[in-house]
Amino acid sequence: MRIESLRNVRAAALCGALLLGALAPGMAHADADVETRNKQAVSQAFDRWAAGGNSFFRDILTPDVLWTIKGSGPSAGVYRGVDAFVAEAVQPFAARLSEPVRPVSKQVWADGEHVIIQWDGTGMARDGQPYRNSYAWIFRMRDGKAYEVSAYLDLPAYDDVLQRIPDPA
C-alpha cells in the first residue's frame, strides 16, 4: 500500500473514531431520556390507579399488547391485545371483588425500553375476604406505552378468588 493511501486510511479511521466519540454520549443521553419518560409514564399511571382511577390498562398498554401471565395454573397464559386481556383476565377477576385491587406500594425501575414495577395490591372479594397480592410486571415500552408485558404474581391467591367467588354475570 502506498504511503499516501495509508495516510488516508488512518485519517478516515481517526475521523470515524472522533465522530463515534462525539455521538456516543448523545446516544446515551437519548436512552436516559427515554428511560425517564417511560418510568414516569408507568409511575403516573399507577398513581392514578392508586388514587381511584379505573383506566390503568387502557392508559398504559398499546391496543396490540402481548400480555403474558407467567407461571402455571389456570390463569397463566398469553393474551393478545388489550381488549382480550381486559375481557379474559381483568374483568372476570374484578367482577368477583366488592372493592377493586389498588396498588398500595410500588418500586419502579427503567432500563432501556423496559420498565419493571414491583407492587403490592389489596382489594376485597365479594365474600368479605381480603385479597392481597404482590406483583412484578416487566413492561417493554414504545412511545410511552407497553407493548409486551411479563406479569409475575402469586397465582394461587388470584385463582382462589376466581374459583371461590361465583361469577355475578
Rank of each mutant, 00 (worst) to 15 (best):
residue 8 N to Y: 02
residue 10 R to K: 05
residue 10 R to T: 05
residue 13 A to G: 05
residue 13 A to V: 10
residue 15 C to D: 10
residue 15 C to K: 07
residue 16 G to P: 02
residue 16 G to V: 00
residue 17 A to G: 11
residue 18 L to Q: 05
residue 19 L to P: 00
residue 19 L to F: 11
residue 20 L to I: 08
residue 23 L to P: 00
residue 23 L to Y: 08
residue 24 A to H: 11
residue 25 P to S: 04
residue 26 G to S: 05
residue 27 M to E: 15
residue 27 M to S: 09
residue 28 A to I: 13
residue 33 D to M: 15
residue 33 D to G: 14
residue 34 V to N: 06
residue 34 V to C: 09
residue 34 V to E: 11
residue 36 T to Y: 11
residue 37 R to G: 04
residue 39 K to M: 14
residue 40 Q to C: 05
residue 40 Q to K: 09
residue 40 Q to S: 12
residue 43 S to N: 04
residue 44 Q to M: 15
residue 45 A to E: 01
residue 45 A to R: 04
residue 47 D to V: 10
residue 47 D to H: 07
residue 48 R to I: 05
residue 49 W to F: 07
residue 51 A to Y: 01
residue 51 A to M: 00
residue 52 G to E: 08
residue 53 G to E: 10
residue 54 N to S: 14
residue 55 S to I: 01
residue 57 F to K: 02
residue 59 D to G: 06
residue 60 I to N: 01
residue 62 T to E: 09
residue 62 T to S: 13
residue 62 T to P: 12
residue 63 P to W: 08
residue 63 P to L: 10
residue 64 D to P: 04
residue 64 D to V: 12
residue 65 V to I: 15
residue 67 W to D: 01
residue 67 W to M: 07
residue 68 T to K: 08
residue 69 I to G: 06
residue 69 I to F: 06
residue 70 K to V: 07
residue 72 S to P: 00
residue 72 S to R: 15
residue 72 S to Y: 15
residue 76 A to N: 10
residue 77 G to W: 02
residue 78 V to K: 13
residue 78 V to Q: 13
residue 78 V to H: 05
residue 81 G to F: 10
residue 82 V to H: 02
residue 82 V to E: 02
residue 82 V to W: 00
